[in-house]
């Protein structure tokens, strides 16, 4: 049953990628809408999958790499769809949907057998802490897509090379503004995520901060985005500089998520 669900979801997302890609090439609005609704229908099944697994396991399904990937992909899509409902823009889907697909494909390649929750994780804080952190990650992922598009479009404008992408990508002012917004929201979520984590750490381990690799790296990520916001608000940075920092932040975030789990053993090694 679970396999069927995962396959259905992934196929819908792949179809959505195709639709978005064709939309990008042909600029036919109908294809963009198709991509959006394919994404939405996949999302519905995705919700069902999370609920189903949660009910079976009787806990918030975010333990282990498999579950965290499925949950992360779900959040990225949720954040994307939420922005898309307001923006009705479509182009962003061309960049976000492949990311979601690769997260799901990665998850599908892993062992999805259910294991009992580690005793340390049996706490109501789990859902709060993980949801907040991953919400932050999802916003940063969105910001990353905006930053990539920004740099692409800006390079075209600067070098005056008008290529096929030029007509298809949105204006840079828009990309810059949305990148900023995504990071502002992501920063709030990550901050709350770190705070909730440290409160939980105080309860579970007796200390707010343990300099565990995950903690250190999430601090690094947090600092990169703090630099972004500081540069933007206090120093008047805009555009390309901000986009580069957004991409660096995304790199730090990926390392916090994956790198730390595999390379640096510590208190947070639940993904293995």
């Amino acid at each position: 049953m679970q396999q069927v669900l995962v396959r259905t979801i992934t196929s819908l997302y792949i179809l959505s990628v195709f639709a978005y890609f064709l939309f990008f090439v042909t600029q036919n609005k109908k294809l963009g809408t198709t991509g959006f609704f394919l994404g939405v229908s996949g999302f519905v099944f995705h919700c069902a999958l999370l609920v189903w697994r949660g009910v079976l396991l009787r806990h918030f399904p975010v333990s282990g790499l498999y579950e965290s990937l499925v949950f992360f992909a779900w959040l990225v899509l949720a954040v994307y769809l939420a922005t898309e409902v307001r923006l009705r823009q479509g182009t962003n889907g061309v960049f976000i949907m492949p990311l979601v697909v690769s997260l799901m494909a990665y998850a599908a390649s892993l062992d999805s057998s259910r294991r009992p929750l580690a005793p340390a994780l049996q706490s109501p804080w789990l859902s709060v802490h993980v949801t907040l952190c991953f919400l932050g990650y999802a916003c940063f992922t969105l910001a990353f897509a905006f930053a990539v598009m920004y740099l692409w479009q800006e390079r075209g404008l600067k070098t005056k090379k008008i290529d096929a992408f030029f007509f298809r990508l949105p204006p840079i002012e828009f990309l810059d503004r949305l990148g900023y917004r995504s990071i502002a929201f992501g920063f709030i979520f990550l901050t709350l995520g770190i705070i909730s984590g440290s409160v939980w750490a105080q309860n579970a381990w007796g200390r707010f901060w343990n300099w565990d690799p995950k903690e250190t790296w999430s601090l690094v990520t947090w600092l990169v985005y703090l630099a972004y916001l500081h540069g933007r608000l206090a120093l008047g940075f805009r555009g390309a500089k901000c986009a580069v920092v957004a991409i660096a932040g995304f790199g730090a975030m990926l390392f916090t998520y994956f790198g730390v789990s595999f390379l640096l053993p510590g208190l947070h090694s639940y993904l293995k």
């Binding site: 036919n28 479009q153 007509f167 949105p170 204006p171 840079i172 002012e173």
Partner: peptide, 25 residues
Amino acid sequence: TDTQIGKGAVSTSTAAIELARKIFE
């Protein structure tokens, strides 16, 4: 509607507008 035949500015003054619209929201 089905092709992009009318898209893209082909005169100096409209090209300026098109660029402006790719810079500004």
